[in-house]
Design a protein around this nucleic acid. Structure first.
Lengths: 304, 304
DNA sequence: CCAAAAGTGTTACTATTACACCCATGC
DNA sequence: GCATGGGTGTAATAGTAACACTTTTGG
C-alpha cells in the first residue's frame, strides 16, 4: 500500500555510489535498533548491565547494550543476538516494552530503538559477572552513571515496566534459578516493588496460590540455617496459563467476506453479527464473575 | 497503512541523495509504520475500525489504519496523524503496545510496524460512525473479516493488551464520555474481560474505590428508568496517579562518573553503592507491605 | 399494564493482616 | 555460644460473594 516502487537497490546496480550510501530508497528510512535493559538478579539485588561508550557521540558515557536490526532477522532476534554477544547467554527471558523514536535522540542519523528487558537468573548473573570478554559493568539499579542518548529514560521506564508485568505474568521466576528459596522469591518481589513483606504472610500467600511447590532435594545454600527449596509448579502454571492465552484461530470464515462489500462508509458490519454463537454467548453471560481486583490499579498508582 | 501513498514526507532532512533522487544509506534500512487498532465503544459493545484495501497485495482484504513514519515525527505522532486522517478525531487515548517485525510480513519491502491501540468514547464513536469521508467500517471485535498482513495477530494481541492495562491503569474511562452511567462502566469491564458482574457488587466496588463520584446533573438517557450519572474522580485520581509515576530526575550526580572508570570487566560497581541514601532506604524497609494481590496474575491466566 | 432497566442491604464466608518465639547452622 | 537467617500459628479484621424484590419509565 505504500510506495510499491520503493525497491531496495543492490549495491552493484548503483552507478553513483557515494562513499556512504549503497542502499537506496525512494523515501527516507530511519535506522532501527534494539536496546536491552539487562537485569541481573544476584539472589538479593537487582543489577543492570551497561557498557561504556568508546566513540562519539557520548564518548565515555554508559549505554545499554544494543545494535542495529539486520534485514534477515526480527527485532526479537536482534535483541537476542546483542544479548548473546554481550553475555554469551541464550535462552534468556526477553520482552520488548517500548519504542523510543524522538527525532533527535541520535545526533548522527534518525534512529528509533525498540527497548527490551532481559531477566537473568542468579546462575546467569554469576556467569556474566565472571566473564571478562567485554567492557561492561553491573550497576546497582538505583545508582546509575551518566547515560548516553535517552537511555536514562529507557531504564527508568524499564523498571516501571518490570513492576507492571510482575503483576500480570510469572516473570519473577525468570529471575530465579530452577530451584530457589522462599527468601529469594520474596527478594525478587521486594526489590521490584520496593516493598518489604512479612515472611510468614509471603510464604502463605505463595503456597496458597499453588504457584510453587517444595522440592525435597539436597540443599547446599551456605546460609546459616538450611532453607527449604521450591520450584515453579509447572504442572499447574503453563497449562492454565500460556496455552489459554491463545485465541481460537478461525473466528471468521474466509468466504463470507463478500457479505461486507458495501457502499456505505462507516456502517455497522451487521451481517457479521448474525452468528450461531450468539446463543452460547448469552448462556455464558449468565455466570457471574467476582468483582475482586477490578480497581486495584489505584493501589499501584499511589505506591509507584 | 492505507492512504499513505501520497503523504510521505518530503526529501528535506536527508543528506545523502543519489542522482535517482533516492535516499541512500550505507546499510539496509527497514521501513517503519504505525498501525492503530481503533476500539470504539458504543455504550454496550466494543468495535474495531478497519479499512478495505484497494491495492495489491491483499487486495480486498481488510487492514488496520496506519502509515509510514516521517522523518520529522515520532512514532506516536505518526499514529496520531493516521488516526486523525481516518477519524478526524484528536485527543484520543493512544498507546503503543508492540512492534511487529517478521521479515516477510510485507511482501514488497522490509517493513516493521509499531502497533497502537486507540480508545474512542461513545461520543467519538458516533462522530466516526456518522462520517462518510473514508471507506472504513466498524466491526464487532468477535467477528472480523479476512485481514491483510499480520493484522489478525495484531488485533488479537491488542485485545489481550487492553485487558492487561485495564488492570494497571484507568483506561476504562478512555472508553467513556466525561459523564457516564454505572451500567456503561460495567459494560466496559464486562466486554474487555469477557466477564459478567453482579450489579450491586460492581457498584459498591467502584464507589468504595472512590474512583468515581456521582454527578447531580440533568439526565436524558432514553432508557427505561433514568440512571444516575457519574464521572471520574479527578481530584482523587490524577494527583496520586500520574504524577507519582514520574521518577525523581537526578538519581546520580554527573560528576562522580570518573569513579567508575575501571579496568576490570564485569566487576561490581561498588563505588556507586556508597550513598548517603542507604540509611534512609533501610529505614523505609522497616515498614511492612501487604502481600495482597501478589500472585493475582494466576487469576488472569486461567480466565484469559 | 407490561417490559426493561435501575435502585437497594444483609448475611456468610474468605482473605488478609499483624504479630513473637524457637530452631538450625556456621563461625 | 552467639549471630544470622529459617521456620511456624493464630486471632482480629476487612473484603468479597451471593442473593431478590421494588421502583421508575416508555411504549
Amino acid at each position: 500500500m505504500l510506495h510499491s516502487e520503493n525497491k531496495i537497490s543492490e549495491p552493484n546496480d548503483q552507478k553513483e555510489v557515494s562513499s556512504a550510501g549503497n542502499y537506496c530508497y525512494r523515501y527516507p528510512h530511519a535506522a532501527v535498533t534494539a536496546d536491552c535493559v539487562i537485569f541481573g538478579f544476584t539472589g538479593k539485588e537487582l543489577k543492570i548491565l551497561l557498557v561504556e561508550r568508546g566513540n562519539e557521540p557520548y564518548l565515555g558515557y554508559w549505554a545499554l547494550p544494543g545494535g542495529f536490526m539486520r534485514m534477515n532477522e526480527t527485532i526479537e532476534q536482534t535483541a537476542a543476538r546483542e544479548l548473546a554477544e554481550e553475555t554469551n547467554l541464550t535462552n534468556v527471558f526477553l520482552d520488548q516494552f517500548k519504542v523510543y523514536s524522538r527525532v533527535d535522540r541520535d545526533p548522527r542519523e534518525r534512529v528509533i530503538t525498540v527497548a527490551f528487558i532481559a531477566l537473568l537468573k542468579p546462575d546467569d548473573y554469576k556467569v556474566v559477572a565472571g566473564d571478562d570478554a567485554v567492557n561492561a559493568i553491573w550497576f546497582n539499579d538505583k545508582m546509575l552513571p551518566p547515560l548516553a542518548f535517552d537511555h536514562k529514560e529507557i531504564i527508568q521506564e524499564a523498571r516501571q515496566y518490570l513492576k507492571e508485568i510482575l503483576k500480570l505474568k510469572p516473570v519473577a521466576f525468570e529471575l530465579l534459578n530452577k530451584v530457589f528459596t522462599i527468601a529469594e522469591l520474596q527478594a525478587v518481589y521486594e526489590v521490584i516493588n520496593s516493598a518489604n513483606y512479612d515472611r510468614r504472610n509471603f510464604l502463605r500467600t505463595a503456597l496458597d496460590s499453588e504457584i510453587i511447590k517444595e522440592v525435597p532435594d539436597e540443599n547446599s545454600h551456605s546460609n546459616h540455617r538450611i532453607s527449604r527449596l521450591y520450584t515453579v509448579n509447572h504442572n499447574f502454571l503453563p497449562s492454565h496459563a500460556f496455552e489459554a492465552t491463545t485465541f481460537s484461530d478461525d473466528i471468521f470464515p474466509a468466504d463470507s467476506k463478500s457479505q461486507v462489500k458495501s457502499d456505505n462508509n462507516y456502517v455497522e458490519a451487521e451481517s457479521f453479527e448474525k452468528s450461531a454463537l450468539k446463543e452460547e454467548i448469552k448462556e455464558e453471560k449468565e455466570r457471574k464473575t467476582p468483582t475482586k481486583g477490578l480497581f486495584d490499579f489505584l493501589r499501584n498508582l499511589s505506591s509507584s
